[in-house]
Design a protein around this nucleic acid. Sequence first.
DNA 1: GGATGTGAATGTCTTCACAGCT
DNA 2: AGCTGTGAAGACATTCACATCC
Lengths: 206, 206
Amino acid sequence: MRRIADPTVRRLSLYLRFLEECEERGVATVSSEGLAHRGATTAAQVRKDFSLFGSFGKRGLGYTVSDLAKRLRNILGLEREYVVAVVGAGKVGRALAQYGGFAARGFHVRWVYDADPAKVGMEWNGLRVRDVRRIEADFPRTPPDIAIVATPADAAQSVAAQLVELGVRAILNFAPVHLTVPDDVAVKNVNMAIELEALSYALRHR
Amino acid sequence: MRRIADPTVRRLSLYLRFLEECEERGVATVSSEGLAHRGATTAAQVRKDFSLFGSFGKRGLGYTVSDLAKRLRNILGLEREYVVAVVGAGKVGRALAQYGGFAARGFHVRWVYDADPAKVGMEWNGLRVRDVRRIEADFPRTPPDIAIVATPADAAQSVAAQLVELGVRAILNFAPVHLTVPDDVAVKNVNMAIELEALSYALRHR
DNA sequence: GGATGTGAATGTCTTCACAGCT
DNA sequence: AGCTGTGAAGACATTCACATCC
């Protein structure tokens, strides 16, 4: 299958959220128009996005909510569960570890690490913060599918390198630095400073 | 000036972060090559980005760190301070309110609101959580430049509408829904579920 | 010599418009 | 008639390559 662009994948995720709402409300069928309104895009874009993977709808009718949701979950790889490790037990790490919303979607935070002896040993929602040096011993037993880097900027790159070394192939990075990793490792960045500065720019230029 | 694309603005923010590090380390001059390495892009892209705003470097030499940083701060609108209001005092709202990093960059969280009576009145770092119904009375006095929406999904749209109504022109949205707002209001989204699902997709397709 | 600044070329993403099913 | 699926067109963003200047 052709390589799919990142913006497309992100929209699929948005469509799926909308479909799940439809399922709850008992709506059985939905049009590209309906999906577009919620996904912040156009009906043509919605149809094009799906067409990259196949032909999911019925002409003249629209899409069957449950069928489409199932196909999107399959495409996104959400039919399985993921083990997640959080490195960095600061404000962000803590919020992530305690947030229940991830587990509901199949992402289970099973490990939390920190380098600070004052934080090591703390327990949040039954999750004990472990010494970051234990990563080497822990991962071979139950390797995480996804690692979340929530360390200070200066530690992030070396942490990422170690994670990759131990076999991690997907990283969600909250540290405000670009992580250099091999091509076969996926990195997504969440950087609130950038978002705020983009808003600052927007406020100034209108 | 021509309209600048969002990806460009975000890179400017990354370049600035690198320049600030250079300032701290006493590095006086930097090349497009150096900036590219940190900004996860190419030297040509760096030069093109700057060329949209003018001509900041010296041929054969590179860019003077302090000059370039000043110009980027000016372009991004970071020469002033911003008042920020956080709506929603859950896990995310709390982490945002307590995080000191924003203030250091000129974004001051001055208000925190929640609808839950159990949370109203709590005090975090000298910031008291206020009843969301007070927004109407508070904002005319010290209107925030930026509002952060950190409410549950089902409340986000109506909160956003109220904020816009009261004059807010920039919103950072953590709720997992698309906010519909007028064209002159800037919205940036931070959606961890999307990032995790994009990683899930990446893990499956390689 | 060395690094910028920039038109031209390329590549990527989005929109259009309409043929094709139901 | 209604709505999908899709090639073609258009808009947008990135990369190339080289003239330009310090």
